[in-house]
Design a protein around this nucleic acid. Structure first.
Lengths: 337, 337
DNA sequence: AGTATAATCCAAAACGTTTTGGATGTCAAG
DNA sequence: CTTGACATCCAAAACGTTTTGGATTATACT
């Protein structure tokens, strides 16, 4: 029922070839016939069949993106913003975006295999890189084009964009130290996540630079959710010698810490300082507003998508490794305002 | 370079047809040759080319989903949870999920046209239905399969799943009335959003049932973001005769209202009651925890995806209209605990 | 022996597009 | 009148799969 090139060809009395070439803008079609064909195609409501085109060109004009979700009730403003950035940039290049949601593990790598081996996409975006990241190892082995948000500890080269979490966290920690804090709690994410380990390094850097010995008991591992931040916050702040400040390695957990502090009757910003990382929109509207480190999530989504486009179009990247410097955003939750 | 049926056929010495049929499990292939073919395919790492298969079968095994994003910095936990539900269900059925992000309007409808007319997907998921929803009108006109999350006011029938927002909001409002509130502020979303107008109806129902005349000045329109809720909250609570309770038609705005109240020195739960709608994970961890109406977002994602699968497989739905009843969740932000 | 039945296989067409490698006709220059 | 250049057109192949409609051979039954 949909209109095909053949239908148009029959109508105008030219061959399929000529119709195809007229629509594609080749100059070996007479201007008059081109006009006729264009007009007829328009009238008949012709739209090229994406699948047929793909089979012939061997390009899908689609990029893949597997969102790492943890647990059934996954809800993270970070990813919706990142997705918006990626999606809007993809639209600019008329690329489709194929999305899967998988928890890290067996099924996740299968989702990658499916996209790659069944040639469903031209390239992939890999986010939240991990130690010895099996996704990156796999894609490199297959020679499949991708761009990662985040570095890796694999002894291999691949294109990535990353935020200097170590530097950002170091600045944040030093800011707290400059406010007089010495016992600073830290809620990390699981350390196989590269960004978590970078940020933890930044925290340690700052302590060391100021001669503060790291108290291992002040460092906990959370799961990046508000619930998890709440629980860790209760633990840290419920200690006999509680920290005077708590840093969470993402904003969602920091919001949980604020909640935990308040549930213990502490006033955040006065009795205890709290800080996060990301600067999700919610951070500015927390009560009190959350001190954090801003990484431009939406922009990052656009940039990695843009990099992938360049990689697919040109075959290589002029700038395959990009490190963005995040920016400290001081608000009231750390009490210095 | 990828292995094709032809490669296998040459290796095992059978025709492409036989290889194809062996892999597809037809019973007109001898058991011994089937084994040989299966083994060889495995060894050679054969994976069928998705594009070729699609062209032949005229099915894409892909469903489309256009996320309505507002403004560049779009970040909404509601959508990441919905997406997780949809994505996980789609994975169960081995369906690909094609995602676009567009602000409502011209570009949005083009995204639909692209998916439909270029046959990129087999069916679509439409979320956040609107008055005279042009997307639904378009899809019905094209006779294209879709399932909506939300009803419409169009004089037409289509498959949908919806939450009874009117009933939910009515219960919530009555709860506040039962606590003694008479001046209840209400922050709606733009009323062309069906859910917004349903929820507003529920609010009005409750007022009327208790003989409270609606004060138009207590009803504002927000944009569903925390920022927007904050601003509306400041307006309402800054009045000379401020309301004693404020309901926002989604949780994100309610969190903004809490923030606004606190910025005005009010203690939420004591000086003013605040309530929302959705029960996003953040709601339980707000300070104070947010009274809200729970709609099971993740489950809804799964359900609408499941419905679309049934529609595509069976050609029709046994239960084309589903209305879920939401559940009131009373927490401390309305002061009754 | 001949004939129906079953088991196993496959050539070819089809899906709708793009691209290759000419074919045909026209016109100007020699 | 021939030649070459140019403008315009198109048949056919190709992309990799699924499916149609038999073909072939072996087996079982009169």
């Amino acid at each position: 029922m949909p209109v095909t090139l053949k239908d148009i060809a029959e109508r105008v009395g030219y061959s399929i070839t000529t119709v195809s070439r007229a629509l594609a803008g080749y100059d070996d079609v007479a201007e008059s016939t081109r006009q006729l064909i264009l007009r007829t195609a328009q009238e008949m409501g012709y739209r090229p069949d994406a699948t047929a085109r793909r089979l012939r060109t061997r390009r899908t004009d689609t990029i893949g993106f597997v969102i790492p979700t943890h647990g059934p009730r996954f809800s993270d403003p970070f990813f919706s913003e990142l997705l918006a950035g990626i999606g809007n940039e993809a639209a600019r290049w008329e690329l489709d975006l194929l999305v899967s949601t998988r928890a890290p593990g067996e099924e996740e790598i299968k989702a990658y295999e499916r996209m790659v081996t069944e040639r469903r996409v031209d390239g992939l975006l890999v986010v939240r890189t991990r130690r010895q990241d099996p996704r990156i190892a796999y894609l490199l082995e297959k020679g499949f084009p991708f761009v990662a948000f985040g570095r890796s500890d694999l002894e291999v080269d691949f294109p990535y964009l990353d935020v200097d979490g170590r530097q950002g966290m170091r600045e944040l920690t030093e800011h707290l130290i400059s406010l007089g804090h010495r016992r600073i709690g830290y809620i990390s994410a699981p350390l196989d996540l590269m960004f978590a380990s970078h940020r933890l390094e930044g925290y340690k850097d700052a302590l060391e630079a100021h001669g503060i010995v790291l108290d291992e008991r002040l460092v906990l591992i959370g799961q990046l959710t508000e619930q998890s931040g709440y629980e860790a916050g209760r633990v840290l702040l419920g200690r006999r010698e509680p920290p005077t400040a708590v840093i969470a390695c993402n904003d969602l957990m920091a919001l949980g810490v604020i909640s935990a502090a308040q549930s213990l009757g502490l006033q955040v910003g006065r009795d205890v300082a709290v800080a996060g990382f990301d600067d999700i929109p919610l951070a500015a509207h927390a009560q009190p507003p959350l001190t954090t480190v801003r990484q431009p999530i939406y922009e990052i989504g656009r940039r990695i998508c843009r990099m992938l486009v360049e990689l697919l179009r040109e075959g290589s990247l002029r700038e395959p490794h990009v490190i963005l410097r995040p920016r400290l955003v001081v608000r009231e939750s750390c009490g210095s305002i």
